[in-house]
């Protein structure tokens, strides 16, 4: 099991995705969508297509690998539980941004959240100018 560095966005893991990943970690061998759906303890039970979408997303994000077995995919985790925790911790630590007095040029630095109305107004202004060009 490898840690797919650049591919994994640890912060983008949703609740269902985390549950599906838990099931795959607990299993000794790769699982099909139906296997994962049956092991996810949810009430009401999740639809087959929902679980398939969740596993598809996990695959796209690089968390799981899959291989064709007959007409169905079998999924296995690409990243270990510990490795994921480490990635999350590292990500949380490094999300503090550059040092306070960093010697760099920032595209747009933020001090506090901006007024959404101002942003909407600017977006409308740009759209209006673009369309009138």
């Amino acid at each position: 099991m490898t840690s797919p560095k650049a591919l994994v966005k640890v912060e983008s893991l949703g609740e269902l995705e985390a549950s599906a990943l838990d099931v795959l970690w607990a299993a000794a061998s790769p699982l099909s969508v139906r296997d994962v759906a049956s092991r996810l303890k949810r009430r009401p039970a999740l639809a087959y297509t929902t679980v398939m979408t969740v596993l598809d997303r996990l695959h796209d994000k690089g968390f799981v690998a899959r291989e064709m077995d007959g007409r169905a995919y079998l999924y296995r985790p690409r990243i270990g539980r510990e490795a994921l925790m480490g990635e999350r911790a590292a990500s949380a630590l490094s999300k503090q941004g550059p040092p306070e007095s960093a010697v760099l040029m920032a595209f747009l630095d933020s001090v506090e959240s901006r007024d959404p109305k101002v942003l909407d107004h600017l977006a409308e202004l740009i759209a209006a100018r673009r369309s009138s060009r």
Binding site: E100, S101, S110
Partner: peptide, 17 residues
Amino acid sequence: QSLEQRSSRRAAGLAAA
């Protein structure tokens, strides 16, 4: 940035927009 609502840095060398 507004959605994140995470304050960034503002200091002598790093001007803020």
